[in-house]
Design a binder for these strands. Sequence first.
DNA 1: CACAGCAGGTTCGAATTTGAACAACCCCGT
DNA 2: ACGGGGTTGTTCAAATTCGAACCTGCTGTG
Lengths: 158, 158
Amino acid sequence: MGRMAETRWLDEREMAAWHGFLEATSRVSRHVETQLKEDAGLSHAQYEILVRLSATEGGELRMTELAEGLFTSKSGLTYQIGQLEKRGLVHRRSCPTDVRGVLAVLTPAGREALRRSAPGHVAAVREALIDVLEPDELDALARALGRVGGRLRPHPAD
Amino acid sequence: MGRMAETRWLDEREMAAWHGFLEATSRVSRHVETQLKEDAGLSHAQYEILVRLSATEGGELRMTELAEGLFTSKSGLTYQIGQLEKRGLVHRRSCPTDVRGVLAVLTPAGREALRRSAPGHVAAVREALIDVLEPDELDALARALGRVGGRLRPHPAD
DNA sequence: CACAGCAGGTTCGAATTTGAACAACCCCGT
DNA sequence: ACGGGGTTGTTCAAATTCGAACCTGCTGTG
């Protein structure tokens, strides 16, 4: 019965890739997180929320949509929106078409906070990842990781 | 004075790479984390600790060395070693050559836990990252991310 | 129209993580 | 031998994160 197939261990190349992935993600994450916190007082999660909101028509988005876009849990988003709301960067508005729904709306202060912190953040991203790679390497990375992320994306409803 | 140079925003290609990086790291991390937690009751951090320890001569390592290898903070490691110690997978031993030092030592139970959980973990890593890429893509990824991680590594003491 | 099943958000508790502050200790130059 | 300076781990409080349980309110079906 269910006897597992012999394990295919990782060879040296594969191990190097996995380890490199872990180290890079860990360090890049810390780099970006630290820069944002020090220079703008925002966590990366909070910054991303502002970005997504600012990219929409009215600067507002349903909680669920936001959560999906941020690859985070619903409860995690509830928490972060609460934090941003306390600081007046975002406010909640109930959805006109669905009583249950909640819209997170970017406030003028939120838009301003984003405008101020964006340059520093972009610089950090360049320093940590973008400017470290040659254009072709960057494209290869985008293609490869795009596939990786896509395959783990929650079912498009099969 | 200190006026910042004009910000070099990210173009579409760069944006795609950054977003892909964020999505991939987020989803891969969750995938691996979930598999380990469900199948072995270990967090990825804990699993990595067992791996590093098992790779050494006596299955032991100084706290600081371990923390560096795991790209984590010292206090974070203290916490995790505490958890593993509670479960009998690791135990602490004071360092013979430095009174301040502490050695984390893998116990037989710890070695056994690692042996049991490794196959499932490797499978998850393959499913999420390794087997999704062609050999050349994997090498390119390793080269690129290796450089990225290396550049953000704490000063080798200049 | 009534109902079962599902979707949207929040709440709650448990587990982690991080940096700062500490206390103890090693090491090197004077 | 001595003192300053850097190291080693731990402790502590604050911030997050996640999944499970819940309550409400949609929605398609009979």
